[in-house]
Simulated assay, not measured.
Amino acid sequence: MATDTQEVYSLMIPIVQSNILLPNSNVAEIVPFSNVELFDDMTNKPGWFLGHLFWRGQEIPLISIDVIQGLSDPQANKRSRVAVAHTLNSNRELPYIAIVVQGIPRLSHVRQDNIKYLAEESLSDAEKMHVTVDDIQASIPDLDQLEEMIMAARSAA
């Protein structure tokens, strides 16, 4: 009897105090924290919208999930990197989002038998849900919500 185990290859990506979990197919690239232009003037900009990453000839909005979660320093250590994630809505104005992350992501094989959903009462605006995968806690970013937040921040500026 063959078993049909469905598995989603994902990346467990460290942020300041926890991890985010994204399907591998959603992550275009993890790049060093360089080619970044941070906003000098944060007037009319939310604190989580840090600036832009210049990547492959494009200007990608740079955000911090840590700041959305209430932390103050998205560059908590010298190992800061940027995860370039595909948006989900085929929005030509916003095909990618750049997220400040910490350290090196780990490949994670997510299956029904190794993922557990955690209580959702303390989700930030950036999160879809909290999970554990092989006993490692992570949040799954709400890419649709992040896209809407960025579009709203751009139009308000």
Rank of each mutant, 00 (worst) to 15 (best):
A138V: 01
T87V: 03
A157M: 11
N89K: 13
N19I: 05
M1Y: 07
E7V: 15
P61R: 08
F33I: 10
Y117I: 05
T87Y: 01
E121Y: 02
I65Q: 10
P95K: 02
E29C: 08
Y96N: 12
M42I: 12
E37F: 05
L143Q: 11
D113V: 10
G57W: 01
S18D: 00
E7W: 04
F39S: 04
N19Y: 07
A28E: 14
H52W: 13
P46Y: 09
V133A: 00
P74D: 14
I30G: 11
T3F: 06
M129F: 02
P95Y: 01
H130A: 05
D4R: 13
N24E: 15
N44I: 09
T132N: 01
S155Q: 13
Q58A: 08
L62K: 13
P32C: 04
I150M: 03
D142L: 02
I99T: 13
I99R: 10
A28H: 15
K45V: 07
D144M: 13
R154M: 15
V8H: 15
K116E: 03
I60T: 08
G70E: 07
N91S: 12
S64K: 15
F54L: 05
M1W: 08
V100H: 12
Y117D: 01
S72W: 06
L94H: 06
P32D: 08
V133L: 00
I104G: 07
V131I: 07
I68C: 12
E93Q: 13
K128H: 09
V31T: 10
K116R: 05
M42V: 12
A156M: 06
L50F: 08
V31F: 01
R81S: 09
N89V: 08
L118D: 00
M149F: 10
L22P: 02
G51L: 12
I104P: 04
P74H: 14
A153I: 05
L107W: 02
R111L: 11
L38N: 01
W55F: 13
D144R: 12
V36C: 11
L146A: 11
P32Y: 06
L50M: 13
R106V: 08
R111D: 10
N77W: 12
A28Q: 15
A126L: 09
V67T: 01
A119S: 05
D40G: 10
R79F: 05
I63D: 06
N91G: 07
G51I: 14
D73M: 06
V31N: 03
I60E: 00
M42Q: 14
D135E: 09
E29I: 03
I65N: 10
L88C: 11
A85Q: 13
P141T: 03
E59H: 02
I15E: 04
V84G: 15
A152G: 00
E148Y: 07
T43Y: 10
D135H: 02
T87K: 03
A119V: 02
N26K: 08
R56M: 08
T3N: 12
H130Q: 02
L107S: 09
G47Y: 11
Q69E: 15
